[in-house]
Each structure stands twice: as C-alpha cells, then as structure tokens.
Nucleic acid binder design. Sequence first.
DNA 1: GTCTATAATTAGATAGAC
DNA 2: GTCTATCTAATTATAGAC
Lengths: 218, 218
Amino acid sequence: MTAEAIAPPGSRARQKAETKARILQCALDAFAERGFDGASVRDIAAAAGVNHGLIKYHFSDKDRLWKAAVDFLFERLHRELDQDISQADLSPLEYLKDWIRGYVHYCARHPEHARIMVQESIRDSDRLSWAVDKHIKPDHERFKPLNEAYMRKGIYPKITNYSMSYILVAASQTLFMLGPEVQRVYGVDVTKDDVIDAHADAIITLFFDHKAPPDEVT
Amino acid sequence: MTAEAIAPPGSRARQKAETKARILQCALDAFAERGFDGASVRDIAAAAGVNHGLIKYHFSDKDRLWKAAVDFLFERLHRELDQDISQADLSPLEYLKDWIRGYVHYCARHPEHARIMVQESIRDSDRLSWAVDKHIKPDHERFKPLNEAYMRKGIYPKITNYSMSYILVAASQTLFMLGPEVQRVYGVDVTKDDVIDAHADAIITLFFDHKAPPDEVT
DNA sequence: GTCTATAATTAGATAGAC
DNA sequence: GTCTATCTAATTATAGAC
C-alpha cells in the first residue's frame, strides 16, 4: 500500500509492491473463507496469478503471510474508524451512536476482518497469542476508559467492561460475518446499504433507547 | 447415545455404540478447534484411541462424520433447552429472561456448538446448505411468532426479526465461543459460574431493563 | 468390529533456473 | 523478481486381514 504510493508507476519496485499487495489481498480472502489450516498457499498464489514459490520470497512462510494479513486488517480498521470520528461537538451519547454506526458499516464493508479473527480466537495458539498482544488487547485497553465513562454517565448499564465490549462487538459484526448463512435463512443480502443502516439502528435502539414495559402492561 | 441406553452393558452392540460415541465426541472437539478443513480424521481417530479405518466403518466419510456431529449438537440443544423451560406461569418478559439465562448457560457449557457452526456459516458451501435446511432455518422459524409477539408487547423494540435474532444469539454465545481470546485479553475464565451468570444478567439488563438517560442529564 | 497396509492427492518448503 | 522442479510429509479414502 505505502510502497505503491511511493514507487513511480510502472517501475520494478512498483510492480513488486503491487504483486505483494495482490498476494496479501488473496490471502485475506482465503484465510477468511477457509481459516489458517484450510487455506493453502498454493491456492492463494493461484488466485493472485503467481507461482507459489513467490510467496516464500515475499512473505517467507505461511505463518508470516497470515500475520501480514492481520496487520493489514487492524491498520485499515484504525485508518477507517479514526477518520470516521466526526469530531463535531456531540453529546457523549450521540458520539457513541455515531461511532457504532461507523463500526457497523466497517463490519459490513470488511467482513473478512471478523471472519479471520474469530476463526483464530476460537482456539488458543501462538498466532492468537501474537494477535492478542499486538492488536486485540491494545484495542480493548484503548476503549476501557471510554467505557467506564459511559457507565458512570448511565449510558452503559452497570455490567462488566468485557461483557459490554463483547456484546457490542458481537452484535455489530455477526450479521455480516455470517452473511452466507443469513442469505440462506432469511434471503437477506447483508451487503445492501439499507440492511446495514437498519442493523446499526437496531443495535442503537435496543441498547440505548429501549426498555421493556413493566409486567403489568403486557 | 440411544444405543448405549438400549444395549446391555458389556455386550458387543454396547461397545460398538460406545466406540461410535467416543469418535463423535472427539470429532466435535476437533471440528470446533480446527474447522472442517483443519481437522483430520486421523487425529480424530487417534484422540478416540481407534484406528482411522474405523471411522469409515462407522461414519462412511469425513463429510458424514461432520454431519453426524452437527446433528448431535442440535439434538442436544433442543433436549437441554426444552427441558429448561420452567413452565411456571411467568409473565412473557420473565419467561424470556429465563430462556435467555438458560441459553447463555448452554452456550457456556457447550462452546463447541457455536465454534463449529460459526466456522461453517462464514462461507457458503454444501455443508452450510445442509445445516441451514435441516437445523438452522427450522430453529429460526420456530422463534419467529414468539419474537413477533414480543415486539407487539414492546418487549422487543421495533427492529427486523433477523437483526434481533442475530444480536441476541451473538451476544449470548460470543464471549464463550471466544473463550481463549477472553482469557488472554482480560484474564477472565468464562467457564466459571459467576462469569456466566453475570453475562446473562448483563444481556438481560442491557436489552430490557436499561435505557440511556436523556442528553441534558449527561 | 477393529486394525494393517497402501494408493492417490495435496500440502508447505526449498533449490535453482532465468 | 518470478517461475520450474522437486522433496518430504500429511491427508482422505479404500482394500483386505483377522
């Protein structure tokens, strides 16, 4: 990505960067669709239109290719979400709602992020350990003070920080992560804008604007 | 399982059923941990303490072994959740809260269910098609009238049935499905009873007993 | 019923040509 | 930089012994 912007168009360095980026993109698709074990470097090379030997040249081995793909995911996440912050002077609640809308759209736009990470977080491994230390834990820690502030203000209920975090993230990403299932069960295409907007509104309404009526009413 | 109860202890039929059940249990563990592609029938056979040729005898091939494992998951789900219904004359809201508590405990007790199904629902395949037709879609359809009733009563907000379903299921299962990650990020053991109870309460509070205060207050 | 032996395929890794 | 050729190991599937 960066090299693409730096190297002159048509140059050898530029083509190298483009090939590397193409391999990385195909790796993202493959790891998301089939998991680390299920994806094969030969299939990734074939999808990228290069020989499988070239993957060793650019990424050394399958493990490092996977880590490069995960680095790319989190860098893109931060890039796209940080610029999404409409720093206008919103109330904390409105700011939170905006953030959730942005995050839901990110999940819909890039379902491979959740697909890759979830498949890896299901079992303990060296890769999970690496991903937690480098990306997942720092991200969670970054949100901790904000979450605590929301709880003090009553925007979040008084529940543990980790329950709130996982509920919010799971609610945002699952519908899109499981797109193929949703398509088959409900006939709904979760890549459509109206579906994405409605899902973001659904989360916001359920979490912050809704309360079940007292029993006597029902 | 059924055969175990029928055949006399120590008999040949009984031992056959026990061996088959042992293979199935190891298959559940392997498919949950590594996905369909990542799990190998040889490792499953080794874990079950039998020769890999025996898996062909009992389950024909890897695909049918996977389907038998999924059948087992959904049969157990229905068995354990249907008997969980404390049919006492509760209000609809209290009944729903009880059901959620039961479902969250199921997710914590059997994280392999979500682990196997999520890994399969991430990409479209013949296995997903089979699972949707036989298990997933019937289950979702079974809950549809109930969900609509909750929405009419105002217990659920006015959002699409599929958003509400996926939010509720995702909120319930993700913390336990990603147990290894949660352990590493928060140092929390999600198999502990107090963690499970607190997470169920967290969902119930956030969804039904909580509403963010108006902006003027914060 | 359970295991041994093996065939056919495919994987990741790597040496070396161009 | 990119590709060809090959090595080693692991996979599913299956035929047949006991």
